[in-house]
Design a protein around this nucleic acid. Structure first.
Lengths: 246, 246
DNA sequence: GCAGCAAGGTGTACGTCGTACACGTTTTGC
DNA sequence: GCAAAACGTGTACGACGTACACCTTGCTGC
C-alpha cells in the first residue's frame, strides 16, 4: 500500500525479478531512461532495496545481458558449420531486435559475463568441431567480431518517429531546402540514398531492408571464411618467419 | 588569476579552443571522465561559460568527432578502389587509435554531423568513381558498416592495467584456479586463447596482433566485394520479381 | 511456539552530473 | 565614446549512483 505508479509489489524481491523488471523497463523506455531509481519505483520499492540483489548498476546491466542471451536458445547444430553459424547469429539477431538497448550495452562495455563467455564458447565450438584449425578459428572470430550478436551498425538510423516517412517534422519547403543542401554537399550519399529507396515513396533513406543488408554482409563474410578454410589457410608462417634466412 | 589546476587562460575562449581542449581531456582522462565541469576547470573557466560556444554536451561530442575526422586527412585515391578504400580505412584507424574514446562516441550516437557525412560521402565516392553500381555500393556500405572507421570490436579487451601481463592483480594461485575454472566451463575459448598466445609468455589472450586481425578481416571483406563487383552482382532482381508471372 | 538472526527493505545524505536563468563584464562596430 | 552584442559568472534545480545506519520481515533451531 505504499507504492504508486508501479507494478504490484508481488511479494519479496529477488535477483531474477529485478533483472526481468530492468529488461522490461529498458525495452519500453529505452536504456538511457533506465535508472536505479526509476527501476525501484517500477518495482514499488525504494532505490536502495535493489542493492540487496545487484552489486551496482554495472552488474545489473551484466545480468540483463545474460538474461536475454539465454533467450537466444541453444545452438541447433544440424548441417554444416555455415548453417550452424548462420542460425546462431540470426537467432541472436532476432533476440537483440526485441531488446534494442542490448546493442549499446554490449558495445559499450567489456562484457565477460558467464552468458557472454558461454555464447562465445559455443560459437568457437562450431568452428572447431567442423575441422577449423585453432589458428583460423581465432582469426575468424576476430573477423566476425560484434556481428556475432547479429546487430547492424546503424550508420544513420532515424530515431523512429511516429510518422511514417522521413520528414523530421519539417514542412515541405524546409525538407526540400535540406535536400538541395544535401545534393550539393554530399552528392554521393544522395545518389545512394535515392537509388535505394526502391520500395516506397520515401525520398531519402529507409528504403532498404535491414534484414537483407545484414544477411548480405554476413554471407559475404561466411563465403570468404569458407574459401580460407577450403584452402587450409593459416597465419602461422607470419610468425615462424621471424628469424629466417634472407 | 582566478583559475587553478587548469591551463593558462590564454585570452578568450572560442568554439575551437573548447573542442580541442575537450579532445585533449578525453585523450588523457578517458571519455567517461570528460564532463562539462571538468572541461571548464581545465580551461580555467566556469562551467556555464562553455555553453556560449557549444549548445550542450551532445553537440560538444559531435564537434570533437568532426575535429578528429579532419585529422584523418583527405583521400589519397591513387591506384584502384581497393587500395583507396584500404588507405582511407587504415588512416582512419590510425587516427582513432590516437583517440580511443572516439569509438564509443561514434558507436553510441547517431552521428550525422558534417564531418561524418563528408567522410561517408567521400567513401561512397570511391566506389562510384570506380564503376560500382549504385545498388552494389549501397549494399557494400552496409557490409562495411562501422569498420569504415577502422576500429575493432574489442571482444574482450583488458582494461590495460599498469602491469604488463594478464594477471589482474591476482596472485599465482588465484590465477591458476581461474584458469582451471575456465578450462572446464569454456574449453573452446581457452583453446583459442592459448593457441594464439604465440609471441610471448602470456597464458591467456593478448597474444594476438590487433592490427593484423583488423587487416585480415578487412581484406576478407574487400576480396568478397571484389568478386561481387567482377560478377556485376546486383540485388535488383529481388525487387523486380515482386509481381512477375509464375 | 518462540527467541534469535540473517536477509530484505527504508531514510537520509553526499558528491556528481547537465544545464536553465539572471546578472556582470569585456569587446566590437559605428 | 557609446550602444549593443558577445562573452563570462553565480546560483540553483532536478536528476543520477550509492554509502551508511537503521527498521522489519520471515525462517531457523530449539
Amino acid at each position: 500500500m505504499s507504492n504508486q505508479a508501479g507494478a504490484p509489489p508481488r511479494g519479496r524481491l529477488n535477483r531474477d525479478k529485478v533483472l526481468r523488471a530492468a529488461v522490461g523497463l529498458a525495452d519500453e523506455a529505452g536504456i538511457e531512461l533506465l535508472s536505479m531509481r526509476r527501476l525501484a519505483q517500477h518495482l514499488g520499492v525504494v532505490p536502495m532495496a535493489l542493492y540487496k540483489h545487484v552489486a551496482n548498476k554495472d552488474e545489473l546491466l551484466d545480468g540483463m545481458v545474460d538474461l536475454i542471451i539465454a533467450e537466444t536458445g541453444p545452438a541447433d547444430s544440424g548441417g554444416g558449420w555455415k548453417a550452424a553459424v548462420r542460425q546462431r547469429i540470426l537467432a541472436a539477431r532476432a533476440t537483440l531486435q526485441r531488446h534494442p538497448w542490448a546493442r549499446r550495452v554490449l558495445e559499450t562495455r567489456t562484457n565477460k559475463t558467464p552468458g557472454v563467455l558461454a555464447y562465445m564458447d559455443s560459437f568457437i565450438g562450431i568452428f572447431l568441431s567442423h575441422g577449423f584449425s585453432e589458428d583460423l578459428t581465432h582469426h575468424v572470430m576476430h573477423a566476425i567480431g560484434s556481428r556475432m550478436w547479429g546487430f547492424t551498425q546503424e550508420l544513420f538510423e532515424e530515431p523512429e518517429g511516429q510518422d511514417g516517412g522521413s520528414g523530421d517534422g519539417l514542412d515541405g519547403d524546409a525538407q526540400l531546402a535540406l535536400l538541395a543542401e544535401m545534393s550539393t554537399r554530399y552528392p554521393n550519399i544522395l545518389r545512394i540514398a535515392t537509388a535505394s529507396a526502391h520500395d516506397q515513396g520515401s525520398v531519402v533513406g529507409r528504403g532498404c531492408d535491414d534484414q537483407f543488408e545484414f544477411e548480405f554482409a554476413l554471407d559475404l563474410l561466411l563465403d570468404g571464411i569458407e574459401k580460407l578454410h577450403a584452402a587450409s589457410w593459416t597465419s602461422i608462417p607470419r610468425v615462424v618467419l621471424s628469424g629466417e634466412a634472407p
